[in-house]
Write a protein that binds this DNA or RNA. Structure first.
Ligand SMILES: [Zn+2]
Ligand SMILES: [Zn+2]
Ligand SMILES: [Zn+2]
Ligand SMILES: [Zn+2]
Lengths: 167, 167
DNA sequence: CTTGACCTTGGATACAACTCCAAGGTTTAT
DNA sequence: ATAAACCTTGGAGTTGTATCCAAGGTCAAG
């Protein structure tokens, strides 16, 4: 049994957030004291943890509400319904992962094309990529001195072609 | 030279969005007609494309503002600065992916524990998991008839232990 | 000269998900 | 018995990213 502040501290959220969740039907305390203080059970805490995990990975509160609301009305749902909902969310998550993977790839390509060195960004390949097409990223080729291995470690093509020591 | 509607159509955004970007300092038309119409140059169009590309790889407008300020003033920035922004964003995206993968796993476990059949969800293992700990998911065991292979295909443990035909 | 498509502005609205505030009631420790 | 720390409510404010609206100005065609 927790009071609102205890549960908040336990789960590292603000009391306001718990009241907000209550107002929006995600999590209500199992009871109240005579004086009106909210009393949360361990069960409530578990439910909160689920909400927080779902939230942490990008589920909206609306989606979480949908997922949790079935519980109110179990007998009017079939396993197929419940599983369907979960599978919808799963597809949702997988779509988000795919989208982020796309971002990741784009960012990795941008990152890898830039030497990350201390010289002027005038020829920075990241900026050049953003200036033109992102599909067409070239390893940058500074006009200034740029042979130092320290600054070409991320720039394989250039490192190989310019200071061909290895070969 | 484009009027706002032309540029909007060209880049597939709304005129409101262009005015919004202007208000927030991301993109201002190079000039105005005598009557006050915004006039965008090809240069402005390029800048807009820069913004849209950066958005497409996951940067927020605030981050794009930062990128644009570097763009305008390249020579006072180093590759390291630019790459730093990209790498921060990359770390950010990767953290989000990791979280999503975690939740994907949870959802997959939920999904797999449920038979997905047409009978009441009263004993649905998904709901049971939501009610208590999600770490402790058991394959559901309906009290009603549930031997049909059709409804147990996703429920390996039960399928094996209950109707032990295979073995 | 009228019509319709386009443009202007400032301000309103939307949505998510909080976050803070004011004014007051309750508990607990000393 | 009083202060500190907690709790209550309703409502307002915040951030990001737009999107919409009203009232009116501009422009080209017929
Ligand atoms: Zn460089
Ligand atoms: Zn660079
Ligand atoms: Zn079932
Ligand atoms: Zn089930």
């Amino acid at each position: 049994m927790y009071r609102i502040g205890e549960l908040a501290q336990l789960c590292e959220v603000k009391t306001d957030t718990l009241r907000f969740y209550e107002k929006h039907g995600l999590l209500s305390p199992s009871s109240r004291t005579d004086s009106g203080y909210r009393i949360y059970t361990e069960n409530d805490a578990e439910r909160l943890r689920f909400i927080l995990r779902a939230k942490a990975v990008g589920f909206t509160l609306a989606e979480i509400t949908e997922l949790l609301s079935i519980e109110l009305d179990k007998s009017n749902w079939a396993c197929a319904d419940v599983k369907g909902l979960v599978d919808d969310k799963l597809a949702n998550v997988e779509a988000k992962i795919a989208e982020l993977n796309h971002f990741q790839l784009s960012l990795q390509r941008l990152s890898q094309a830039c030497c990350g060195g201390p010289e002027s960004a005038e020829h920075c390949s990241i900026l050049e990529a953003l200036e033109s097409s992102t599909d067409n990223i070239r390893c940058e080729n500074h006009s200034h001195t740029h042979d130092d291995v320290q600054f070409t470690k991320n720039c394989q093509n250039k490192a190989v072609s310019k200071n061909s020591k290895e070969k």
